[in-house]
């Protein structure tokens, strides 16, 4: 089991405070140093990405308060931002968040059929999570990949030129991966090395 996971379970069971690991904290301080003295609030958006990924999969009030503390800003300043941007989740989501593009260019290339297919296959509607907690389905606006339509992102990884057959393979793959607890992509914090 990963350190983060243990951290999280401990937090839930023993109610100990939420915090980043030592390695992550080092990265966090490096990120804060990207901005001038006194402008550490600028690091808020990257830090929330890291927090969401490493501290439980969504931004609970506790997590947001921790980030406020870390950046020496008011909790409300964090809540304001967390509620504005569409990539932050304020509630528990599945291990894999499937974000299907529904905007014009994808829609005219079959994007709506892809959404229908996913809903049918996973037996969930837009915004819902499968009973096993594995998949959350979410429609999003243009992902900036319109030439490769229809497009979706799963935990910020792009999947392009989608067809039902392709989706079957992708989902099967993720199901297998889920038990290995392997991430195919680097974490937000790692992207800063």
């Amino acid at each position: 089991m990963s350190g983060q996971k243990i951290n999280h379970i401990l937090h839930q069971k023993l109610n100990i405070p939420i915090c980043f690991s030592e390695t992550t904290l080092q990265k966090v301080h490096k990120i804060i140093a990207h901005y001038p003295e006194g402008k550490q609030k600028s690091a808020l958006i990257p830090l929330l990405h890291i927090a969401q990924e490493e501290l439980g999969g969504y931004l609970s009030v506790d997590v947001m308060d921790y980030i406020a503390d870390l950046l020496k800003i008011q909790p409300i300043e964090v809540y304001e931002v967390a509620t504005f941007y569409s990539q932050y989740y304020l509630d528990k989501v599945g291990k894999y968040v499937i974000e299907v593009c529904r905007t014009g260019p994808c829609a005219i290339c079959g994007g709506e059929d892809i959404q229908d297919y996913l809903e049918e296959k996973l037996h969930i509607k837009d915004g819902e999570t499968t009973a096993d907690g594995l998949f959350t389905l979410k429609t999003v606006e243009c992902l900036g990949a319109c030439g490769y339509a229809p497009v979706m992102q799963i935990n910020t990884e792009f999947y392009e030129h989608l067809t039902p057959a392709k989706i079957d393979i992708i989902l099967e793959d993720l199901r297998l991966n889920a038990t290995n607890d392997k991430h195919s992509d680097k974490t937000w914090a790692e992207k800063y090395s």
């Binding site: 990207h34 958006i45 990405h49 800003i73 504005f84 990539q87 606006e141």
Partner: peptide
């Protein structure tokens, strides 16, 4: 030189919203 990610908001492409976002605020 540094890279700064947003977090999903079309409006942050508008230059002043982008600056707000870069300052750690709503766009």
């Amino acid at each position: 030189m540094y890279v700064h990610p947003g977090a999903g908001a079309y409006i942050c492409g508008e230059e002043t919203a982008l600056l707000e976002s870069l300052e750690g605020k709503r766009g």
